[in-house]
């Protein structure tokens, strides 16, 4: 089965400014793919290349097997897009705005459009310029969703939404994925990515540093281990264990970072009188933050038939 989105050594530079460098991505049908990275890392640049709003300096990108620069209209026909930041026509009401974007697509299912308006609790009688940030985001989301696209490309979709509307959005997203559609979303809110996405890519300084399943990312990450003993314990014993780093001693407490299996640490600790043992499982957020100081790219192939389960 061909990938819905595929990029090969995708590079975009803005003169002397870095955009993205050698980005390789493969997103399969039915996946919810999270795109993480700090501000200015290259998330929006990647998305805009996929839409042919900007053209790659080198490399290539295909969506639905169509090269983005060759026939963008054919791609746009099958996608729904929400930019990270956008503005629309101040004088149009919400209803007129939705109507215009529906017209640009040759019409949409009015009943589905109405259901989205109701679910997002949007007052469509107000002018766009009068909307709050959250309501503007709702308009953008409905524009992206109202034609039931095969692929959703959403840049910071929950930005500005209150928690209840966020729940609505995730429910709509789950329904879309359950129908076999695909979602590519960038986000800063790691907890929502953790809950929603099948796979995650982390981009830093324009380069992908990691692409993997959410669980795998979490597994790969280090554990923060804290051992409390009845007496003084030599740190060298633990420093000698493979995968252990950053060992710190304070009174009778040892703290360390453990990458990989934790069994050797448990065995070494058992040689002393151990009062307490705390091992914290890292969140995706900690993994994400750890990537800031570890730029080695690790890209795992997508699991066949991934997605659809969230």
């Amino acid at each position: 089965m061909p990938a819905i989105i595929e990029t090969e050594r995708l590079t975009k530079s803005y003169g002397s400014h870095r955009g993205i460098v050698d980005v390789d991505l493969q997103i399969q049908q039915g996946e919810v793919f999270g795109f993480l990275g700090p501000n200015g890392a290259g998330k929006t640049t990647t998305i805009r290349v996929l839409l042919d709003h900007i053209r790659p300096s080198s490399g290539r990108a295909t969506v639905f097997g169509i090269e983005t620069t060759k026939d963008p209209v054919a791609i746009h026909r099958r996608i729904g897009y929400l930019p990270g930041e956008f503005t629309l026509y101040d004088r149009l009401t919400g209803r007129q705005t939705l109507e215009y974007f529906a017209n640009l697509r040759g019409g949409v299912d009015q009943a589905y459009q109405r259901s989205l308006v109701e679910r997002f609790d949007l007052d469509t009688s107000r002018r766009f310029k009068e909307y709050s940030k959250g309501n503007k985001q709702k308009v953008g989301l409905i524009i992206a969703l109202q034609h039931r696209p095969e692929l959703l490309i959403l840049d910071e979709p929950t930005s500005g939404l209150d928690p209840l509307v966020q729940q609505t959005f995730f429910a709509v997203l789950r329904e879309a994925v359950a129908e076999g559609r695909t979602a590519f979303l960038s986000s800063h809110v790691l907890s929502e990515v953790e809950k929603t996405c099948d796979r995650v890519a982390i981009i830093r300084d324009g380069r992908l540093t990691r692409v993997d399943r959410v669980e795998a990312l979490r597994d790969l990450a280090h554990h923060q281990v804290e051992l409390r003993f009845s007496g003084v314990v030599p740190t060298a014993v633990f420093e000698a264990i493979a995968g252990v780093s950053d060992v710190a001693s304070e009174d009778h407490v040892l703290r360390m970072r453990v990458s990989g299996p934790i069994t050797p640490v448990v065995r070494a600790a058992a040689q002393y009188e151990l009062l307490d043992f705390v091992s914290r499982e890292p969140s995706l957020e900690e993994t994400f933050l750890a990537e800031y100081s570890d730029a080695t790219a690790t890209v795992a192939a997508p699991t066949p038939g991934a997605g659809g389960g969230r």
């Binding site: 805009r48 709003h53 746009h76 956008f86 026509y89 953008g140």
Partner: peptide
């Protein structure tokens, strides 16, 4: 310049 075109050109219009 205000970014509206990003959304408009995401529709199937060349």
């Amino acid at each position: 310049s205000a970014g509206r075109l990003d959304l408009v050109l995401a529709a199937p219009i060349s």
